[in-house]
């Protein structure tokens, strides 16, 4: 318990005194505020529970990317500054140092999640709308769960890349390059071999797109989208059971954490 307190205190001090932390969170807050407050943007002003989809939609796309960038900015330089090695010399084991970063990731994910909801609900606090019935519906809770998994998917990918690459610039480049390349490669190969699509659906980037898509959670959104596609003679969208992509994404979270852990144990600092 004392160790947990030490790790939290140390990581909090490192993070809140880092200008990059405030800049990244500040930019995220600014984007979220624009998305929620701008005319025509943000939530449906009908009040709860209908508003949740509009609140989460901008956050679920922005939040994970900002979280990943911040995670790399806070973690990777510890190797260049050799403070990772100094933390171990000062008394942490390499495994404890790694756990400190997992705690940091959990705290940042919670921060982005709560901040998104606070900013999203603010318009309703300032201007209460109509609405009625339950405050939140099960599909809204599922969408929030999807948001959390999306945050952890990008966050653990960033943590793993930081531990492997040990440089912030290269880490950021590699993370975003991977997701861009995955999109391009899967699109090219799927157009030639459609059978591969089922396999590609379980790649991290494709899973991220699936679990952040509101049509997966809200049948009326899927119906609206498919109606529009039908008018254009396009193939109708069919999504697997919600739990399959969520479990697959969670499996990636565990895999990324495991790889980071093994890497930390094996490599010298």
């Amino acid at each position: 318990m004392r160790l947990l307190g030490v790790l939290v205190r140390v990581e909090a001090l490192k993070a809140v005194k880092r200008p990059a932390f405030w800049v990244t969170v500040g930019v995220f807050v600014a984007f979220s505020a624009i998305a929620n407050f701008a005319p025509g943007g943000g939530s449906e002003r009908a009040g709860f529970p209908d508003a949740w989809r509009g609140i989460i939609e901008p956050a679920i796309n922005l939040g994970p990317v900002f979280l990943a960038a911040l995670m790399i900015l806070l973690f990777a330089p510890e190797f260049r500054w050799r403070t990772a090695r100094q933390n171990v010399i000062d008394g942490l084991s390499k495994e404890q140092f790694q756990w400190a970063k997992v705690l940091l990731l959990a705290a940042l994910a919670a921060l982005f999640f709560v901040t998104s909801l606070v900013i999203g609900t603010l318009p309703f606090v300032l201007d209460p709308g109509g609405g009625g019935g339950a405050f939140v519906e099960p599909m809204d809770l599922n969408y929030m769960l999807g948001f959390v998994v999306a945050l952890l998917l990008w966050g653990t990918a960033a943590l793993m890349i930081s531990a492997l690459v040990r440089a912030a610039g290269a880490g950021l480049g590699l993370l975003f390059l991977y997701f861009i390349c995955e999109q391009i490669v899967t699109a090219l190969l799927s157009s030639r071999w459609s059978a591969l699509e089922r396999f590609f659906a379980y790649l991290p980037g494709q899973l991220f797109q699936t679990i952040t898509n509101s049509a997966v959670y809200y049948p009326e959104v899927l119906a609206r989208t498919n109606a529009a596609r039908a008018e254009r003679d396009q193939e109708l969208l069919v999504y697997p059971d919600l739990w399959i992509p969520l479990v697959a994404a969670t499996a990636y979270v565990v895999l990324f954490l495991g790889l980071a852990y093994v890497n930390m144990r094996r490599r010298d600092l």
Partner: peptide, 19 residues
């Protein structure tokens, strides 16, 4: 090996917390 953006005192606070 210290955090360049932290003060000398804050750097020692980190080492002290670990110890």
């Amino acid at each position: 090996n210290f955090y360049p953006y932290l003060s000398g005192r804050d750097n020692l606070r980190i080492a002290a917390a670990i110890k």
